Amino acid sequence: MDLMRIIALGVVLSSGLAVAGEKHDRFVYIDTQNRTAHAGMGSTRNSADFVQYIVCQVIANASGISGSCAARAAAGTYVTCQTTNQYMLEVIKSISDSSFVGFKWDENGGCTEVFVNHGSSYVPKL
């Protein structure tokens, strides 16, 4: 009887039990009417197409510091915004390769909002 329990335990442990949490594939979404774009960094990087991306950057030079965000959807729609707002620059600097990133822009291409979410449900870059 003890041998049967050991065998059963061995089968259970070697069966590859997987306990999964909530996961979100967040590919690039662009809404030009409401001037908003967002995506999961990992989902976008892991996508099957070679078109979509989302990127934010911070640039510093002798004149100061600025930042920008850009996104291209799988259908080819491209949007971008620029900012010198210190709060938005701090948010951009917090982005990681598994973040959920989004931004909004005004009619002149200025960023009006940059947001970043960090969480276990966002797919990491493979």
Score class of each variant (00 low, 15 high):
residue 97 D to A: 15
residue 109 G to E: 15
residue 77 T to Y: 03
residue 118 H to V: 00
residue 79 V to G: 02
residue 72 R to D: 03
residue 94 S to D: 12
residue 1 M to Q: 09
residue 88 M to S: 09
residue 117 N to P: 08
residue 33 Q to S: 06
residue 70 A to R: 13
residue 43 S to Y: 14
residue 9 L to G: 12
residue 64 G to M: 00
residue 43 S to G: 11
residue 59 I to D: 07
residue 5 R to G: 11
residue 122 Y to C: 06
residue 10 G to C: 07
residue 72 R to G: 01
residue 117 N to K: 08
residue 65 I to D: 06
residue 99 S to H: 02
residue 2 D to S: 10
residue 106 D to G: 08
residue 47 S to E: 14
residue 80 T to P: 04
residue 123 V to L: 06
residue 22 E to K: 15
residue 83 T to S: 10
residue 41 M to H: 01
residue 105 W to M: 05
residue 27 F to L: 13
residue 37 A to W: 06
residue 9 L to D: 03
residue 15 S to L: 13
residue 24 H to E: 13
residue 25 D to E: 14
residue 96 S to D: 13
residue 121 S to C: 09
residue 47 S to F: 06
residue 39 A to E: 03
residue 23 K to I: 15
residue 59 I to N: 05
residue 97 D to N: 11
residue 6 I to D: 10
residue 115 F to Y: 05
residue 86 Q to D: 04
residue 81 C to E: 00
residue 124 P to S: 07
residue 55 V to R: 14
residue 88 M to C: 13
residue 52 Q to C: 07
residue 69 C to T: 04
residue 124 P to G: 06
residue 4 M to T: 05
residue 115 F to W: 07
residue 33 Q to C: 06
residue 125 K to G: 00
residue 84 T to W: 08
residue 17 L to V: 13
residue 120 S to Q: 14
residue 122 Y to I: 01
residue 43 S to W: 04
residue 13 L to K: 10
residue 85 N to E: 06
residue 1 M to E: 07
residue 102 G to F: 02
residue 86 Q to G: 14
residue 21 G to P: 05
residue 70 A to L: 08
residue 17 L to M: 15
residue 77 T to V: 04
residue 75 A to L: 10
residue 64 G to E: 00
residue 41 M to E: 00
residue 30 I to S: 02
residue 20 A to E: 11
residue 44 T to S: 02
residue 34 N to L: 01
residue 70 A to K: 07
residue 47 S to A: 09
residue 68 S to P: 07
residue 56 C to P: 06
residue 4 M to R: 09
residue 47 S to Y: 02
residue 8 A to N: 14
residue 3 L to H: 13
residue 3 L to P: 13
residue 69 C to S: 05
residue 45 R to I: 07
residue 63 S to D: 09
residue 1 M to L: 13
residue 69 C to G: 10
residue 55 V to K: 12
residue 91 V to S: 05
residue 85 N to A: 05
residue 21 G to Q: 08
residue 28 V to E: 05
residue 77 T to K: 02
residue 35 R to S: 02
residue 30 I to A: 04
residue 44 T to E: 00
residue 86 Q to M: 08
residue 23 K to A: 14
residue 44 T to M: 02
residue 8 A to W: 01
residue 86 Q to R: 05
residue 60 A to S: 12
residue 9 L to F: 04
residue 117 N to Q: 10
residue 101 V to N: 11
residue 50 F to I: 09
residue 82 Q to M: 09
residue 19 V to C: 11
residue 53 Y to P: 07
residue 93 K to W: 03
residue 81 C to K: 10
residue 95 I to Y: 03
residue 62 A to R: 12
residue 56 C to D: 12
residue 15 S to M: 10
residue 104 K to C: 00
residue 64 G to I: 00
residue 63 S to R: 06
residue 125 K to A: 03
